[in-house]
Amino acid sequence: MPTSTFSPAGRHRTTQGIACGAGAGALWGLVFLAPALVRDFTPLQLAIGRYLAYGIISAVLIAPRWRTLVASMERRDWYTLAWLSLAGNTLYYVLLSTAVQQAGIATTSLVIGFLPVAVTTIGSRDRDAIPLARLAPSLLLCAAGALCIGWQALGHPASSDAGGALFGFACAVGALVAWSAYAVGNARALHRLHRMSVYDWNLLTGIVTGIQAVTLIPVSLAAEPVRHAADAWLYLGGVSVAVAVGASILGNELWNRMSRLLPLTMVGQMILFETLFALLYGFLWEQRLPAPLEIAAFGLVAASVLTCIGAHRSHAPASTC
């Protein structure tokens, strides 16, 4: 039975969903610091380290329930896990890490803030979803923010290498596309798999992602010979475990809970919490104040969230969770 997003029960679910989205954003924002902390390693090495740790930790946590979970899984579910793990984890993080190293934390985090446009547009096609026309003000505000992002990236690159900054911006856009596909696919999978808890779904995602990370090790060795000292590898391991626990285990579980509580047309808006915290962490790391265009961009995308919530409030009878 559909539940209005702003009925008494719907308001409670919405509040819970927004809280989970904020918590996931606070944890995911730390991901933008990792490439800056271990700049001597390639983005592929960073992805392998993070997702090997994610996979190993997930395997340990899920071991007691492994046989029961596998018995309940269908072939379609494994295919879904495989492409979601690739789009939302492995490919996304390689592109994200490259973007951070080439274009800077602030530019990369603001590009990811364009995610609501893609996810909301796709979500508006779901049954009983709010019409896209009602979301037009929200999407236009977010698009205006994206224009500020692009202007900042091209006009004020994070490094003296303009070509590198442009390449980093392109990688950030690629990460945006990959994660948009993940956000939509993951939300729909969670609504379909009522028998699966968000906790177990996250751990299964971790195992599949860990397997993908193992297959990338030969590629990494061929592209970049092992040349780091032992203490550098230990440092990478520590950062990888911290990111795996904070962002992949805890952050992903909060995001999955939010994805079940909110309609898809609101799910995309929640990524702006990651943008907010990533910007805060980035400015603290770079020890600078935000540039005017960065302030304008975030103000515009934040306003898009408020107008999206307002649109759902006025469309409450047709909104679903």
Rank of each mutant, 00 (worst) to 15 (best):
Y199Q: 07
P131L: 00
C148M: 09
N256Y: 11
Q45G: 11
Y54G: 03
A278H: 14
A47Y: 03
A22T: 11
L254D: 10
R65T: 04
D40E: 15
G88D: 00
T80G: 07
R313Y: 12
W28I: 10
G168T: 08
A99C: 09
D200V: 03
S72N: 13
A302C: 10
Y199L: 02
S72M: 01
Q212G: 02
L221Q: 15
V243A: 01
T275G: 05
F167M: 10
G237C: 02
V119I: 14
A162V: 15
A158T: 14
L61V: 14
A165P: 06
W255H: 08
T14A: 06
A291G: 14
H191N: 08
R134E: 10
A318G: 11
A230C: 04
A129D: 12
Q152P: 08
S58H: 12
C321H: 14
R260S: 03
A316G: 04
R134V: 00
A181V: 06
V214E: 04
I57A: 12
A311I: 06
I207N: 07
C308Q: 13
L216A: 12
V301C: 03
P131G: 02
N202S: 15
I249E: 08
L139C: 09
P8N: 05
Q45S: 13
F283N: 07
F277E: 02
A129E: 09
G185M: 00
N202K: 00
L141V: 06
S197Q: 07
E286F: 05
V94K: 10
E274P: 06
S197T: 15
S4N: 08
F32I: 06
V117S: 10
P116Q: 02
W78F: 12
G49P: 11
A232S: 15
G251I: 09
W66A: 05
L140Q: 08
D200Y: 03
L276K: 07
V301T: 15
A278L: 04
I207C: 14
F167H: 12
A34D: 04
S248G: 01
L250K: 02
A103H: 10
L69M: 04
L176F: 12
V267T: 15
L115A: 11
T215N: 00
L293W: 06
A143M: 05
G174F: 03
P35D: 00
L132A: 11
G25R: 04
T108G: 01
V60I: 14
R65N: 05
N202T: 15
R188N: 04
Y79W: 12
R188D: 04
V198D: 10
I105V: 15
G17H: 11
V226L: 14
C321V: 13
N186C: 06
A189N: 03
R13F: 02
A47C: 06
S124A: 15
L300K: 03
L27Q: 09
S160H: 11
Q287Y: 01
G251Q: 05
L176K: 08
H312V: 05
R11A: 09
R257M: 05
L236E: 14
V214R: 02
L236T: 14
R195F: 13
R39H: 14
Y199W: 12
C142Q: 02
S85L: 01
A63S: 08
L81E: 12
L261P: 06
L84N: 09
